[in-house]
């Protein structure tokens, strides 16, 4: 680990000023990802601004939405009564992530901003455009069974590892941001980027911008939901693929649907076209299978991850079956 300065912020604006002025500074909250990256020398901030004391951990109603503070712990959100009643999909996704110990440290903001788990990103002696632009993508022709099938570029085929974000993109959440130029909001789907030619940029946040909260709008998706995470062991593993689904049912007819996949792209992957396919259809496996086929349009596999072309639609179908029966 490199040597670094450590400062503790008590006001959001003060924290933002420090990081906005100093490109080598970084916010730290739970530190469950950043500290690992620093130990390995993948990230080398010269200054850490500890934001844990900022008053950003409330979970409360705001108009037609539930506002979850950026510093709310993953475990606190997963266990929150309002979250469980109105947005159970979010609770399910959070519980599928990491381990109990990590959920007790990790924050909502940090969860969104965690970096990819691509092995080439972590190994300083291998090429990685995300870690060091211009060095090439190690995974493209390398070991890529965990990698993207949607939206990849020849510069980067990494996937975003968050489970929580897959639920939030399905639930049409909005991210609240404070920055040196004031506050702004952006749809959750616009927070993360596709790699394109600049895979070093994970998100559309500007220098110094701090996520303060996420708003989850009221919706009819409180009952028929499921988060299906397929992984190589029963717990504590990143997804091979995951599916967040929510249905609004009238009897057995689908009024509306929200679908997203995780573990398939550089960002949580919302499936708008597949959602439309389901509207007005009966909640049957045949309908789900048709939607899953639409969902997979444009998917492209690499040497080791062709199984995702089959696993992802299967996970979607399984999630929809479970959600419909809920």
């Amino acid at each position: 680990m490199n040597q670094f300065q450590y400062v503790r912020a008590t006001k959001p604006q003060a924290a933002i000023e420090v990081v906005a002025k100093d490109p080598t500074a970084a916010f730290i909250a739970g530190g469950t990802n950043l500290v690992d990256l620093m130990k390995r020398g993948v990230m080398t901030p010269q200054k850490l601004v500890d934001i844990n004391r900022l008053p950003l951990n409330k979970i409360e109603r705001q108009g037609n939405a539930l506002r979850v503070g950026a510093l709310a712990l993953n475990s606190a959100v997963a266990n929150d009564a309002q979250v469980r009643e109105h947005h159970p999909l979010l609770a399910l996704a959070l519980q599928a992530g990491a381990s109990g110990q990590l959920r007790n440290m990790a924050t909502v903001g940090g969860n969104m901003l965690q970096r990819t788990r691509c092995a080439y990103f972590y190994d300083l002696s291998m090429p990685c455009n995300k870690r060091q632009p211009g060095t090439g993508c190690g995974a493209l022709e390398g070991i890529n069974r965990m990698h993207a099938i949607f939206g990849a570029s020849d510069k980067c085929i990494a996937v975003h590892p968050s489970d929580m974000s897959v639920a939030l993109v399905a639930l049409d959440a909005t991210v609240l941001v404070s920055g040196p130029k004031g506050d702004r909001q952006l749809p959750f789907a616009d927070l993360h980027r596709l790699p394109g030619n600049t895979p070093e940029k994970d998100t559309n946040l500007l220098p110094g911008e701090l996520i303060t909260a996420v708003d989850i709008p009221d919706s009819p998706f409180a009952k028929h939901v499921h988060y299906q995470k397929v992984r190589e062991r029963a717990s504590y593993a990143f997804a091979l693929v995951s599916a967040a689904v929510a249905l609004d049912l009238d009897g057995n007819t689908i009024k509306a649907a929200r679908l997203a996949l995780g573990g398939v792209a550089h960002k949580p992957w919302r499936l708008a076209a597949a959602e439309q396919v389901l509207v007005g259809q009966p909640a049957t496996e045949a309908s789900f299978r048709r939607a899953a086929e639409v969902a997979m349009q444009g998917a492209k596999a690499f040497k080791h991850n062709a199984f995702k072309l089959k696993l992802a639609p299967n996970a979607l179908v399984q999630a929809l079956k479970t959600a419909a029966a809920a």
Partner: peptide, 12 residues
């Protein structure tokens, strides 16, 4: 290609 493990921690 590099002769190096890509599974080098308990996440992988």
């Amino acid at each position: 290609r590099y002769g190096r493990y890509v599974t080098k921690d308990f996440a992988d």
